[in-house]
Every structure is written in structure tokens, then in C-alpha cells.
Simulated assay, not measured.
Amino acid sequence: MTTPPPHIEIDGTPAAEPALLAALLTGFGHFTAMQVRDGRVKGLALHLDRLDRSTRELFDRELDGKQVRELITGALANAGRRDASVRVYVYPGIRTVVTVADPAPDAPGAPQRLTTIDYWRPAPHIKHLGGFGQTYHGEAARRAGFDDALLTSPYGEIAEGAVTNIAFWDGTSVVWPSAPCLTGITMALLEPRLESVRRPVTLADLPGFRAAFVTNSRTIAPVTAIDEVTFAVDEELMERVFAAYGAVEGETL
């Protein structure tokens, strides 16, 4: 790892902790994002496992889950919140940063229109930093009038949304693309609670599906279009998806 410079300034003001700032500026690290409600988190154990697993892979160190929970509860207390959107970042030197923001709406997300882009995230199994590519393509999609980008291979195999997982409904099963992607916590909670399968999904397959939806830590939302292919919102399907997620008990921090 590069030795941090001994002196860093921000808008002409010396940074209070140059070593910490240098770690944050590397762009190398990973994170997890969660919704906290009354001090509880759906899939908390999965979040802690993700953080530990990625820390071991990137930094060859373990990350103490108890310490992470204490950092989150401390940050929530300092922010005076019981409900919040929380992110936990891990940087070189195992510097752990917790951010606390307004909670995401608990209501279902608005229907989304997606456009496809030939791009797969590097090391997609890690929720890593430095997501320039997916942010770039997501912003380009919104400027073009879509809600987000859908990442595909050069051969049209679908992987994931820029910041979401995507699932399709064939009338019998919920189909999650099996291409390399990040297994989001919401996806991980829903997959065993729905009649789900994982298999390759290509752009050529889209007309054969009856519906689609996306998931991440902030939303579950139906998809009404992918490029020129349109989908009806299957209200019965979405009710089952929301009910499955709603039945997941939050774990106490």
C-alpha cells in the first residue's frame, strides 16, 4: 500500500488527520448499506458477514462484527436517530467509517425504466468502492430519460442494475440472472422466500417474461421497460414480493 503523504490540504486548510484522509482517498475498500428501523436491521448478520468476508479478501484481516455494531449504534446515538440509512465503509488499515442519513421511504418504489449498457463491474461479488463505471452509466441513463442502467455482457447476458439486482417473472418462478453480480442483501433475503431460480438471462429472453423488478437496500420497485421491451406491473407478484420482505424480522444492533 502506498505510504500516505505527511501533509494534505483541503481548500487551503490542512487536514486534521492526513493518514485517515489518505486512506479515504485511495478509492480502495468496500462497504455495505442498510436501513435501520427502531434500532433493528433486516439481514444484519448478512451485512456483518459481507463486511468480514470482503475485509479478509481485500486486506487479509478479519473484521469484528461486535465492533461494527458498536460503531453503528454509537453513530446512531450521536445523530439522535433510531431510523436511518446507514453505510459502513472499510478502508486500508481497517479504518471503518459509518455514515448516518435520512431513512429511505418504506413505501414501494416507483416503476422504473432501464436501458442496457455493455459493462460489468470488476470483482462484482464485492460491494467495493470506486464505482465510477456504474455511476457514469447510471447518470447517462438518467440524462437519456431512463431511471437507471442495466449492465450486460457484449453478448447480451444480463448481470445486474447499476446499483440494484434485477429479477424476472416467467409466470412460475422468479428468475435471478446467474451472471457474475453482487448478491445484494435484499436479494439474499428474498431469494429463499420466493419460488426462485438462478439461470442465464439474455436480452433475447426479455419478451418471454411477464414482469420484472429491481431490489437494493433502499427500494423494491417494478420495472416497466428495458430499452424497447415493456412489462406490465404484475400487482399480484409485487404484493408477494413485498409481503416476503415484510415478513423478515429485523435483527437488533
Rank of each mutant, 00 (worst) to 15 (best):
M1I: 09
M1W: 08
P5G: 06
H7C: 07
I8E: 03
E9F: 09
G12V: 08
T13C: 08
P14R: 06
A15S: 12
A15T: 04
A15N: 03
E17L: 12
L24T: 06
F31P: 01
F31W: 15
F31T: 04
A33T: 15
V36K: 00
R40H: 05
R50M: 07
S54Q: 13
R56L: 09
E57M: 12
E62R: 15
D64Q: 08
K66D: 14
V68W: 03
I72K: 00
I72P: 03
T73H: 01
T73P: 00
G74P: 04
L76F: 04
N78H: 12
A79Y: 08
A79H: 13
G80T: 02
G80L: 01
R81Y: 00
R82T: 13
A84L: 02
Y91F: 15
Y91E: 09
P92V: 14
R95S: 13
V97M: 15
T99I: 03
T99C: 00
A101I: 00
D102R: 02
A104F: 04
P105K: 07
A110Y: 07
I117G: 01
Y119L: 15
W120K: 08
A123M: 15
H128I: 11
L129H: 15
L129C: 10
Q134C: 11
Q134M: 05
T135M: 12
A140S: 06
A140W: 08
G145R: 10
D147S: 12
Y155P: 01
I166D: 03
I166K: 06
D170M: 05
T172Q: 13
T172S: 13
S173V: 09
V174A: 10
V175Y: 07
V175A: 11
P177Q: 00
S178V: 10
S178Q: 11
G184P: 04
L190M: 04
P192A: 06
V197K: 12
R199E: 14
V201K: 11
A204C: 09
I220W: 00
I220M: 06
V223I: 15
V223P: 06
D227T: 10
V233A: 08
V233Q: 03
E235V: 12
E236G: 08
E236C: 01
E239M: 05
E239F: 06
E239G: 09
V248I: 15
E249D: 13
L253Y: 01
